[in-house]
Design a protein around this nucleic acid. Structure first.
Lengths: 240, 240
DNA sequence: CGTACAATTGAGAATCCTCAAGGGTAGTGG
DNA sequence: CCACTACCCTTGAGGATTCTCAATTGTACG
């Protein structure tokens, strides 16, 4: 199960520059009126479940968290993959229940921010308030971009985009950890396991990517970018 | 073009109970330090465009507004349909550009809320702040539900749900205005004009709905609810 | 009454899903 | 150490769904 590591020292936190406290001056940090609990989760462990009473927000310190949403009949979807610095659990602000579940994809470490404490801090500190507001708008933008992707783009376009985005910060030609199963990739993009498997197999054969264990390498980024841009579509000539 | 009607009197506003000022006590309303401009738009007119400098939020007073997002290649999608009480233009909080466009679907009347004024009010008034925060979380939830719908549900399920939702507040068996074209319905659900047209034609033939001019009536809500729930799927028996 | 746009309908094809079978891999317990 | 299990991945065949292209009809509005 998840393990409590201790209480965080925000002033000396290694990922503070990514967090909502990034812009707080050191003197202000002393005013943070609570010490967030730091919890460690192993891959596959649940952080919170859709339907649980929502009264805590979380900041990801390390690892990858998938945020999923399920339908009554069992169909589900991965809404976001969150990494270091992300803030989870907005539903807490409504003092209701979580409308999604959060699950560790890799081993993770998270800070717990009780809603009441964070709310008090937000009201008293303009920088924290602004940081939260910005994250909020950014989350909404991201969700809206995903809606556009889901509704207008083909499977190959979406998968190619996801790989490139995942790979964005990596050195060209290097191996990158991809701790997601085919099923999870499908749940992000709205495709089935088999479809993902077929696309990746095809791209491996064509020399666009290589895979080994749970690592992936992009060998032909240009072609992949073309696919992501939809240039493999049948005919979309702009000439009359 | 859009026409300026005048400046709003929040205290006596007919839709205040739906707005972010709903919970302000009458005495507090006098403290609203600005008079929102009220503007009228005719069907089809643009309220703001993706890429415009974002410094104004809007409250819908009457009519229906579609909020759309476009890809570089021209493909686009309707993110939301907004009605009385809705707040638009969150991007203004980031002092950047609008990442969507807002267009009047029917004749509309909107209040303009300059970001700077609203921001000042939000910081000074806890109720306004809470109201905005709640709308934010609600918007995010709605976007996430739509993501789930777009990625997991079939066309018929989505269209049936949309009609039922649209019809939710109407009396059973009554005619309801549906000012959306087939193309717009498709842009909401991620389907083409032709697909929408075929679904509706089929349902008309089967006696589930009736259409006349731009009005629609649901004749067999039960069957439609079944379709929306996915009960027309091939086989999903839970027995072994 | 012409023009522009919306809706319909058909035919064929692209895309993706479902079902099914088989192979690989990692962890577990005797 | 090995069998066993569970889970993930792959691949094929067939079919459901939806798109694309094209032609036609209907409708609103100046």
């Amino acid at each position: 199960m998840s393990k409590l590591v201790g209480t965080g020292q925000c002033a000396s936190c290694a990922i503070r520059h990514l967090s909502i406290f990034a812009n707080l001056k050191p003197t202000r940090l002393d005013n943070i009126p609570f010490r967030p609990l730091v919890t460690r989760y192993k891959a596959g462990e649940t952080i919170y479940l859709q339907g649980d009473k929502a009264n805590t927000l979380f900041t990801v310190r390390s690892g990858i968290v998938k945020v999923t949403k399920s339908l009554a009949d069992g169909r589900s979807h991965i809404l976001y993959l969150e990494t270091a610095g992300a803030l989870l659990g907005w539903d807490s602000f409504l003092e209701s229940c979580y409308t999604q579940s959060a699950i560790a994809v890799s081993d993770c470490e998270l800070c717990q921010l009780p809603e009441a404490d964070l709310e008090r801090l937000r009201r008293n500190d303009r920088d924290v308030d602004t940081a939260i507001l910005q994250r909020w708008v950014t989350s909404l933008r991201r969700a809206e971009s995903r809606m556009l992707d889901l509704s207008t783009r083909k499977g190959t376009e979406k998968l190619a985009s996801l790989l490139l985005e995942w790979y964005a910060d990596a050195a060209p030609g290097s191996w990158v950890e991809l701790p997601l199963t085919r099923g999870e990739l499908g749940e992000i993009l709205g495709l089935t396991v088999e479809t993902i498997s077929r696309f990746l197999a095809d791209w491996r054969k064509r020399g666009l990517i290589s895979e080994e264990h749970h690592k992936i390498r992009i060998d032909d980024p240009d072609t992949l970018k073309n696919i992501a841009a939809g240039n493999n579509r049948k005919s979309r000539t702009s000439s009359p």
